[in-house]
Design a protein around this nucleic acid. Structure first.
Lengths: 216, 216
DNA sequence: TCGCAGGCGTACCGTACGGTACGGTTCTAG
DNA sequence: CTAGAACCGTACCGTACGGTACGCCTGCGA
C-alpha cells in the first residue's frame, strides 16, 4: 500500500470499514491483541482477504489509524465577527476539544500504538497521529490566533510559540500520564475536571497573550 | 521478583549491572530488539542466568528501568537564602533539567517502552517511569514553590496546579512529538533551543505566578 | 445453465522468541 | 585435592503469529 496522502471515508468500501472497525475495537480492548487471526475472526472474513486488501499487518494498522483519524472532524470555529467574547469562546472550545480527544480511549490507544511503532524505527504511524492530532489543532487554531492579533485582542510575535504554549497549558502532564497508564488519573475523573481545566487554561493563556498582558 | 520499593545502586551486583547496561543499550539501539538471547549474547552471559536473576523477560525489563531510573539523580537545588534572583535561578534549573531529561535518547526509549507496556494492561513500568520522571521533579519542585510563596515571591493557591502549569509551559508538545518520532524535531535541534525555551517558560511562569502578576 | 470472480474458513508453513535442560568450565571453601 | 556452587554456551522445546495455499460456497453476468 503506497503512501496515501489523504484518506476520506470513501477510501474504503463499507465491508472494509467493518473490518477496520473490528481492528480498532480489538486495539482498544487489548492493545497488542491485534493479530491478523483475531481481526479475521472478529470481522468474519478470511485472512487471505485481509492480506489482499491491506498488504500486510502494518498496512492494516496504518489503514485503521488513517481511517479513524479521518473520522475525527473537529467542529469548525467561526472566524468572522471576532469580539473579545467570541474569541474567548473559540479558544475555550479548542481547549475543550483538545482535552476531550486526548483523554478518550481511542486516542490513548492510537497514540500508544503509534509510540510502540515509533520504537521500531517506523515513524509513519506517529506522523499520521501527529498530523491528525496536534497538527490538525494547530492548523485550525493559528488563523484564529492571528485574527485575534489583527483585532488587537491578542499580543504575540510568533503564532507558533503562542500555539505551543496553549498546547502546554491545556495538556500539561495529562497525556503522558494517561499513556503511561497512571491509575491516579481515572478517565471519569479527568472528564469531570475538563470544564475547570478548560477555563483555567484559557485564563492563563489570556493572561500571557491577552492585549492587556505584558509578556517578556 | 517482588515489588521493590526502592532501588539503589547496591541492589544489583556489578555483574548484574553490566547485564542491565547491555539490556539498556539494546533497548536504546533498537526499541523492541530486547530479546533474551540478544541480551545474553551482548552481556556474555547465559540465558539461564538471566532467568535465575530476573525471573522472566518482564523482570529483566523492570530491573533495567528501575536501575536506570536510580542512576538519574538530579542536582538538588538549594532552598535556603531565597531571593527573587535565586528563586528564578532554581526554577530555570528545574526547567533545564526537565527538558534535558525528556529530550534524551534514554528517556525517550524508556518512556516508549513503558507506554508499550501500558498498552498491555501492565502499568508497572509506566508507574516506575512516572515516579522517577514527572513525579520526582514534582516532589523536588513543590517545596521550592511553597518557599517562594512564603517569601511573597509567588502567588498561587494550589502548589499542585502551579507545578502542573510549570510542567506544561516547559514540556509543551515536545515530549509527545519525540515519542511519536517526529522527524521535524531533531534532537540536536531541540538541544540547541533548550536555553531559549527555558527562559521563555520561566518568564511565562513568573508572569502567571509571580507576586506582581494578577491571575484569575 | 455455465463459468468465474470474490470471498469465507481452515489447514498449513516458517520463523522468532520465551523459557528450559544440560554438559563443560572456573572459582571457592574446606 | 575435592566437592560443589555459579555460570557460560548451546541445543532444544513449545507456542504464537505472520503469511500462504486451497477447498468450498455464493452471486452475477453471458
Amino acid at each position: 500500500m503506497p503512501l496515501t496522502i489523504k484518506v476520506t471515508e470513501e477510501t474504503f468500501t463499507p465491508r472494509q470499514q467493518a473490518v477496520l472497525t473490528a481492528a480498532l475495537d480489538l486495539l482498544v480492548e487489548n492493545g497488542d491483541g491485534l493479530t491478523m487471526t483475531a481481526v479475521a475472526r472478529r470481522a468474519s472474513c478470511s485472512k487471505e482477504t485481509l492480506y489482499k486488501w491491506f498488504g500486510d499487518r502494518d498496512g492494516l494498522l496504518t489503514a485503521t489509524v488513517q481511517w479513524q483519524a479521518a473520522k475525527v472532524r473537529m467542529p469548525q470555529v467561526d472566524r468572522s465577527g471576532l469580539s473579545a467574547k467570541t474569541l474567548r469562546a473559540s479558544i475555550e472550545q479548542f481547549a475543550r476539544d483538545l482535552l476531550t480527544v486526548i483523554t478518550g480511549e481511542v486516542s490513548i490507544t492510537l497514540n500508544r500504538t503509534a509510540v510502540t511503532h515509533a520504537a521500531q524505527e517506523k515513524d509513519s504511524l506517529g506522523m499520521i497521529v501527529l498530523e491528525n492530532g496536534p497538527l490538525a489543532i494547530r492548523r485550525r487554531l493559528k488563523p484564529i490566533l492571528e485574527a485575534g492579533r489583527d483585532a488587537r485582542l491578542l499580543r504575540f510575535t510568533s503564532s507558533e510559540d503562542a500555539y505551543r504554549t496553549f498546547f502546554g497549558l491545556v495538556v500539561r502532564d495529562v497525556q503522558i500520564r494517561l499513556l503511561l497508564g497512571d491509575k491516579a488519573l481515572t478517565q471519569t475523573n479527568v472528564a469531570d475536571n475538563i470544564e475547570a481545566d478548560v477555563k483555567a487554561a484559557t485564563d492563563q493563556f489570556f493572561a500571557l497573550y491577552g492585549a492587556k498582558a505584558t509578556t517578556a
